[in-house]
């Protein structure tokens, strides 16, 4: 029985959960006496107060629109985000904002709870603002930033200057074996970081809300890759600091 209920309702739970507080206020105390919480929500929605449900769904849409605005600003400000990725993400975010804005109008025009339930489900499943769009934006920005460090003039200049400094100390008869090893490790770590994030952007940027939750493993795998890249960069930075200290001390 429980399995059947889950099969019938799991697809609707996403939308129905938006209505849970409404369900609670709509109940008179008898509906929650048996069955699952999904049962309770289903029964309650059938008896819902249209105006209250509209208010609740509209608030859910507005929260998502605010998040999409924040994400859009993030893509505008992000250092290292490639022009192509910025354009793609901003296009996707704009499409979500447009869709949710239209849905908001549709909700306002709804006159029955069946329609509202369909719209509530759509708020979640058609857009996946929190579970897909937000992670996707943060992943692509972070991955592109790692790549940008690897290709940056500043990073290359820093390596060249450290090598120049080591060579000068060597020329003066100093033992710079450890510093050279640290600089070599720095270069290797930067390369490893770039390698770790190389496919992150392409693996997540076109993931669709309709593919959730099947595409969640791709998000998690990309997160692991960016974490690895970040760890490599931190190690590279530590190497650079060590070389600088060695140059000053020698």
């Amino acid at each position: 029985m429980n399995r059947r209920i889950r099969t019938l309702t799991v697809g609707a739970v996403a939308g129905l959960s938006l209505l849970a507080p409404v369900a609670a206020t709509a109940q008179t105390g008898s509906a929650g006496s048996s069955g699952t919480s999904a049962d309770t929500r289903t029964a309650a929605v059938d008896r819902c107060d249209v105006a209250t449900v509209k208010t609740h769904i509209t608030a859910a849409i507005d929260r998502r629109l605010t998040t999409l605005g924040t994400l859009t600003t993030r893509t505008t400000d992000a250092r290292g985000l490639t022009a192509s990725d910025r354009s793609t993400l901003q296009s996707q975010l704009a499409a979500e904002k447009s869709g949710l804005t239209s849905l908001r109008s549709h909700v306002a025009a709804d006159t029955d709870c069946a329609s509202l339930r369909t719209d509530a489900k759509s708020v979640v499943e058609t857009y996946r603002v929190y579970l897909l769009m937000a992670p996707k934006v943060h992943l692509v920005i972070a991955a592109d930033a790692v790549t940008a460090i690897g290709t940056s003039t500043q990073r290359a200049d820093a390596e060249a200057r450290l090598q120049d400094g080591i060579d000068k100390r060597k020329g003066a008869g100093k033992d710079m074996t450890q510093a050279q090893a640290q600089l070599d490790d720095m270069k290797a770590k930067v390369a490893a970081a770039q390698s770790a994030v190389a496919s992150v952007s392409s693996s997540v940027i076109n993931l669709e809300p309709s593919g959730y939750p099947g595409n969640r493993p791709a998000i998690l795998a990309a997160r692991d890759s960016v974490r690895a890249g970040r760890a490599d960069l931190r190690a590279a930075r530590a190497d650079a600091r060590a070389v600088i200290a060695a140059l000053r001390a020698a």
């Binding site: 250092r79 940056s152 990073r155 200057r161 450290l162």
Partner: peptide, 20 residues
């Protein structure tokens, strides 16, 4: 001087790591 110049460059790199 090389150490000082490298440190200046790394400050920019640090900003990117902070963003990550």
């Amino acid at each position: 001087d090389a150490a000082a110049a490298a440190e200046a460059d790394l400050a920019t790199v640090d900003l990117n790591i902070d963003q990550v």
